[in-house]
């Protein structure tokens, strides 16, 4: 097949994935919205999950389908350009959504994370939507500066770290919302399936602690690459600066938790702050920033 055919296939796959994510999002939302309080006196649990169980399962099934479609979208994009599909922001975005949904599916199997379905499918849709409308660029070869094995190493580490940071943010955000609700009274029905506040608190910490070394590696791999491409390993380019700020913010978060013993709201806010520096780096520096990480046409 020709490059052009692969490029078309990639686009169809990405659009189909968006349609399927929409179905998943609706299914997950229904699962949350309609798991209502059951009759008084029921023993095991106060809620009747049976009536929305199928809706939740449908959501997960659709997420799996969307993930497979997106796998095709990313793979065909790579085939059409004869390189790793990480040459511009459109490609980072579709790969990011792929990594996020893949991580989420893994989470469903390993940690029963289905309760995160609504935010995860929403963020995936948002990422893909921005990608196809604002960021889309035709499939093309890489500019010389990007022709390096470090592209695959540096960018994949950064994308995976970013995905896990976002997941930790989703968990910390959920913590803050539920903490506010619980301080006023018992949890509403839609939140009944979400784990306890302590579990959320632990989970967001675990996610960050797990991925912080990878993020450190992504920054260092970037420095090694910058040394061979630009003649210096660190030059306070806006992207580098914000990667550093993100690193420092998460380092502060880890110290606050491990050494000082922060828990709960304060830790969740710090986690959100650190995550937002990553998002800011991705959005602001790529689109409006100047510097060496902004390639023509995003």
């Amino acid at each position: 097949m020709s490059s052009r055919t692969y490029a078309y296939l990639s686009n169809y796959a990405v659009y189909s994935a968006m349609a399927v994510f929409t179905v998943a999002f609706i299914a997950y939302s229904m699962e949350m919205a309609f798991s209502v309080k059951n009759v008084e006196g029921q023993k095991k649990t106060d809620f009747d999950f049976a009536r929305t169980e199928n809706s939740g399962r449908l959501g997960s099934l659709m997420t799996l389908l969307a993930f497979l479609l997106l796998t095709g979208g990313v793979a065909f994009r790579a085939l059409s350009a004869h390189r790793v599909p990480w040459g511009n922001m459109y490609e980072f975005s579709i790969t990011g959504a792929w990594a996020l949904s893949g991580g989420f599916l893994f989470g469903i199997i390993k940690y029963r994370l289905r309760w995160l379905g609504v935010p995860v499918t929403f963020v995936s849709l948002l990422t893909l939507g921005t990608a196809v409308t604002v960021l889309y660029r035709p499939s093309a070869p890489l500019v010389p500066a990007l022709k390096s094995t470090w592209l695959a190493i540096h960018v994949s580490a950064a994308i995976i770290s970013g995905g896990v940071f976002l997941l930790a943010n989703a968990v910390a955000g959920t913590y803050l919302i539920l903490d506010t609700i619980e301080s006023k009274g018992p949890r509403p029905a839609w939140a009944a399936k979400i784990p306890s506040l302590e579990a959320l608190d632990q989970l967001s910490y675990r996610l960050v602690a797990f991925v912080f070394p990878l993020w450190t590696f992504a920054v260092i791999a970037g420095a090694i690459w910058a040394e061979s491409a630009w003649g210096r390993y660190w030059g306070w380019d806006p992207k580098e600066t914000w990667a550093f700020i993100t690193w420092v913010a998460y380092a502060a978060y880890l110290h606050a938790r491990v050494t000082i013993g922060w828990r709960g709201r304060r830790a969740a806010w710090l986690c959100l702050f650190a995550g937002s520096t990553f998002l800011f780096n991705y959005v602001y520096v790529n689109i409006w920033g100047t510097g060496r990480h902004t390639y023509s046409g995003l």
Binding site: D237, T241, I245, V248, A251, A252, H255, A256, I260, V285
Partner: peptide, 25 residues
């Protein structure tokens, strides 16, 4: 506690360099 404050301050102090043009770059 001070180390933590310094760490966060370092992050904040790095911000202006990404907003205003820098002679070194």
């Amino acid at each position: 506690r001070i180390a933590l404050i310094l760490l966060l301050t370092l992050g904040l102090a790095a911000i202006p360099g990404s907003i205003f043009p820098q002679r070194s770059q």
